[in-house]
Design a binder for these strands. Structure first.
Lengths: 148, 148
DNA sequence: TCAATTTTTTACATTTTTTTACAAAAATTT
DNA sequence: AAATTTTTGTAAAAAAATGTAAAAAATTGA
């Protein structure tokens, strides 16, 4: 299993493409050719990126818990499968091109940050990442509350 | 298995045809020649499109849950198999032509959107898709209620 | 610290896809 | 059967996506 670790800045070019960090490319190996699924994160304002393989697992697990003849489940499935895109980094440079609508929805304009979160990668607008990051004290308090 | 991911706009030409997005064409591969089943979606105002293969599976699964010697089941089966059409994208451009009655029934006139929902594709009138899309807050609430 | 390598960025060229307009064929009507 | 309508197919223009090359920046190793 692929574990993404570390944070890397990237600029968005005039066509809305950004280069997938070389360090992550190395972690992926051949998997990179199968591409990635990029979608909006549930609770916070950023994108998340899964290898196709790990996304398939996650998505099938969700689907198996739903009954699509149930109105609410059906509604949820629609929302869950919205605002996604499938990307394959290009051969030479490893660039991915994410639809403007998705980038805009999380406020990415010029500068983005790829954040490794082990099983997935988050893509943040540089500014909002900085303003969302917990202070040391907040993190300590949350850790004690959650696992302490 | 084919997983449709992403959203693509398409215009309806003066003859009521619309081009199947190239990205989905790529996912389908040879399957595209077997065509698709298009029908009205159950709970909301859009069409849904299945590869012939996945349609066959879905439809058999539904059928197996019914007893056609039961009056209500028999009625349901009739409704379930109504308002469907079979389409094959044309060779050169990958256009499909959906009967006016079906397009009208979900308000598609000029602009449509193909939405990948993994095992199926939804086709929306651009306007009604926008007005149906959940806000972030609604989605989060629904997610917590459904899977939280 | 400096040179070499790798990665990232920028600019531009090429290809593919989408759209529009029109032509041919088939079916329907008169 | 001729004419109209409807359907299906072709071609070219416009737009979008993808690919290439080279410059700039950053990283690595001597």
């Amino acid at each position: 299993m692929t574990n993404f670790i570390g944070e890397y800045k990237a600029k968005v070019d005039d066509k809305g493409r950004l280069v997938f960090p070389a360090a992550f490319k190395a972690i992926c190996g051949e998997q990179i050719k199968q591409g990635f699924v990029v979608k909006k994160t549930l609770f916070v304002n950023c994108l998340e990126m899964y290898t196709y393989e790990s996304w398939e697992k996650e998505s099938e697990a969700v689907r198996s818990r739903l009954n699509l003849f149930n109105r609410d489940d059906e509604r949820f499935w629609r929302a869950y499968t919205s605002n996604r895109t499938f990307v394959v980094p290009d051969e030479k440079l490893g660039r991915i091109s994410i639809p403007k609508s998705l980038l805009e929805s999380v406020g990415i304009e010029k500068e983005a940050v790829f954040c490794g979160r082990d099983f997935k990668i988050e893509i943040w607008a540089k500014d909002s990442l900085e303003s969302t990051t917990l202070s040391d004290e907040e993190y300590v308090a949350l850790a004690e509350k959650t696992l302490g």
